[in-house]
Write a protein that binds this DNA or RNA. Structure first.
Length: 691
DNA sequence: CATGCCCCATTTTTT
DNA sequence: ATGGGGCATG
């Protein structure tokens, strides 16, 4: 199909969004309004109609999944080599590529490590333990504070001088030490993937010019989720030329607690007065009733840009509200209803989704689904990467490509057992950090030094020597030929499987863990192959081209770029259990929203923190997932913190159009005092909003 | 392999 | 309070 035919299939607003290319463009895309079509068609339009080279275009998303889907859809629109060199990636991968391209300027060495949040936490623990007795909670708080600073483009020096209280002073000092150590380890963390490029582009005109030459047009998905650093990255790259399209929906901003700045939508209009704002309000997903509910609910939030979704799909069924005696009845009700509705509607299991506020709510539901033998898929859960065997394997990979990665070194120097104990390691660390020797060197490097014999017994030196010799040998093999084969041989040679068997409760457990490790290596190999193909067909000019295989592939592994796809490929027919957060971007014919109670949705903490508006958006996201039917459930009583609590129906229920709701199980009269109390609450909330 | 004990978290977590 | 997962032990 030609691009003209594609365009003809879009509605007038969508067409305008695609055709407008001479300046800054903001597409306010309501839920289900076909924003992905707009982005993908626009990329094809830029290439086919405007003659722009695909390698000058970068489309940026937040998740690997979104990037993959977009890539695939663009691939269907573009023919042959038209799409070569096109960048469709997450913010983090784009940042990673910029860093890889500017290593020298940034002062990093090839093979630098990418610390995931767990690695970062381990480092913080080390740094903070020196000070005092520190609990895990404190470490987490400092970690999130540092992350917030990095997201807000606050560097350690600024943090130190602006710290408001003792806690922040402390965190700022840790921040400074943390960054210093990352640098010494030749490592960056996730937030650095955005922060470092931004600082570099801001401060180095040459680098900025280079990247502006590489990227002529940017498209940003889920723009309302960008944080300060991410917005600056876009702004720096696009600058006066202002050739970009950002797509977002302020009503679907549910990640402010993680640094997202929905106000970037407003900032954009201020920074780019010529901004062309295009609203997509026609919804192709839900019935009129569902949309009216969503519109009515979200009208309770303040808006910079008013937006009203409409649909041609007809009114559809009423929204059912089911009040249950207690949480168990609620779970049972949802499960049994899915069972009957599947027959009645001739639906499949995959047509149903159950959405809730917190993961713990899934427990009871799981039991009930099992009881009725309903197949289900639970989102979340322990990730592949938090498995110990995967962390071990990743540590080996990291140490192989980055000998300065002390974290990786410490994790695996004695795994499997090499009789290298804490005493040896402490002395080694002292030696490596010894200022008297004139420099701080990495643990791995220290193992090679003659001077070690002064501080460690010969036996210990020997064991360390064997380990480093082993690793060095693998490195040489990797450099001189088949890197993946070298890695596989390494795992076999040190008999990692035997170690797993020693530590597993059952042989089957160990076998499963070893299989996980092989899966990891297989994925690494695939990733490298894919990359090699890309590189062979593309100019060296392209952003995504990486010729230095293993290093890049391992970074992508840390960014979860691969691996999860197999989970997705598992498209078996099952009911989906999701948090409302996890449901964003998805849609289902039949949606159940559980726990519509005060303290749960909106969550108590959110009410206390004064962020009810975000909770309302969360409910809005949940509602707009539904195509045909929507069922809201709640319980009158619920066990929490070991107590049986009476629940109050969520204020959001009062904010839905009463005529569209079909109540079931509501007591004839609600306790009038409670209702009044809730009314007052709402008024108070409104006041605080206005004041 | 089964049992029992201890500790954990009860708000969301794209990378 | 409570349930569940991880881990050690028999």
């Amino acid at each position: 199909m030609s691009i003209k035919q594609r365009l003809a299939k879009l509605n007038p607003r969508q067409q305008e969004a695609v055709r407008f290319i001479d300046g800054p463009c903001l597409v306010l895309a309501g839920a289900g309004s076909g924003k992905t079509s707009v982005i993908t068609t626009k990329i094809a339009y830029l290439v086919q109609e405007c003659g722009m080279s695909a390698r000058k275009i970068a489309a940026v998303t937040f998740t690997n999944k979104a990037a993959r889907e977009m890539k695939e859809r663009v691939g269907q629109l573009l023919q042959g080599r038209e799409g070569h060199g096109l960048t469709v990636s997450t913010f983090h991968t784009l940042g990673l590529n910029i860093i890889r391209g500017e290593l020298k300027t940034l002062g990093y060495k090839p093979g630098f490590s990418l610390f995931d949040p767990e690695d970062a936490k381990a480092l913080l623990r080390d740094l903070m333990q020196k000070d005092a007795q520190i609990d895990a909670d404190q470490i987490s708080r400092v970690q999130s504070q540092i992350s917030t600073w990095k997201n807000d483009l606050v560097l350690p020096g600024d943090a130190l001088s602006h710290a408001a209280d003792d806690d922040e002073q402390f965190a700022a000092r840790v921040y400074e030490a943390y960054n210093r150590h990352l640098k010494a380890y030749n490592a960056v963390d996730f937030d650095d993937l955005i922060l470092l490029p931004v600082v570099l582009l801001r401060d180095d005109p040459e680098v900025l010019a280079r990247w502006r030459r590489k990227i002529h047009y940017m498209l940003v998905d889920e723009y309302q989720d960008t944080n300060v650093s991410q917005y600056l990255l876009v702004k720096l790259l696009m600058a006066e030329r202002a050739t970009f399209t950002v797509v977002g929906d302020d009503d679907q901003s549910i990640y402010a607690w993680r640094g997202a700045r929905p106000e970037n939508l407003v900032t954009l209009g201020e920074d780019f007065p010529r901004l062309n704002v295009i609203k997509l309000e026609q919804n192709y997903r839900s019935t009129g009733t569902i949309l009216r509910a969503a519109n009515t609910l979200i009208a309770n939030n303040p808006h910079v840009y008013e937006k009203a979704l409409w649909s041609e799909l007809g009114p559809g069924e009423s929204i059912r509200v089911v009040v249950n005696r207690h949480e168990e009845a609620e779970a049972d009700r949802v499960a049994s209803e899915i069972l009957t509705r599947r027959i009645k509607e001739r639906a499949e299991w995959r047509d149903f989704a159950v959405l809730y506020r917190g993961n713990f709510q899934a427990r009871l539901l799981e039991l009930k689904l099992q009881h009725y033998q309903i197949p289900y898929k639970l989102s979340g859960g322990t990730s592949f990467f938090s498995r110990n065997e995967i962390k071990d394997a990743m540590a080996y990979l990291r140490l192989l490509i980055n000998p300065a990665d002390d974290n990786a070194f410490l994790r695996i120097v004695n795994v499997p057992r090499r009789e290298i104990g804490p005493g040896t390691l402490e002395k080694l660390a002292n030696y490596a950090n010894d200022q008297a020797t004139g420099r701080g060197i990495s643990l791995f490097a220290a193992c090679h030094e003659i001077g070690l014999e002064q501080v460690l017994p010969a036996r210990a030196v020997d064991r360390l020597g064997r380990f480093t010799h082993f690793i060095d040998g693998v490195r040489r093999r990797m450099d001189s030929g088949d890197a993946i084969a070298a890695i596989r041989d390494m795992l076999r040679e040190m008999d990692y499987e035997a170690w797993l068997h020693q530590n597993a409760s059952a042989p089957t457990v160990a076998e499963r863990r070893m299989a996980n490790v092989w899966t990891l290596i297989d994925q690494l190999e695939k990733s490298m192959e894919r990359n090699a193909e890309d590189s062979a067909t593309e100019d060296s000019d392209s952003l995504e081209t990486e010729t230095d295989g293993v290093e890049a592939a391992i970074s992508r592994l840390v960014l979860r770029d691969i691996l999860e796809q197999q989970a997705e490929e598992d498209d078996s027919d099952r009911v989906q259990l999701l948090t409302m957060h996890a449901s964003k971007g998805l849609e289902f014919p039949h949606v159940y929203l559980m726990g519509l109670e005060e303290d749960l949705l909106p969550h108590r903490n959110a009410v206390e923190a004064g962020t009810v508006e975000e909770e309302r958006r969360l409910a809005y996201v949940g509602i707009t997932r539904a195509r045909r039917t929507l069922t809201l459930t709640l319980a009158r009583q619920r066990k929490a913190y070991g107590e049986l609590l009476d629940c109050t129906p969520s204020r959001f229920l009062d904010e839905l159009p009463p005529d569209d709701l079909d109540w079931e199980g509501r007591a004839d009269k609600e306790d009038p005092e409670k209702k009044q109390a809730r009314g007052k609450d709402a008024i108070a909330g409104l006041r605080s909003l206005l004041g």
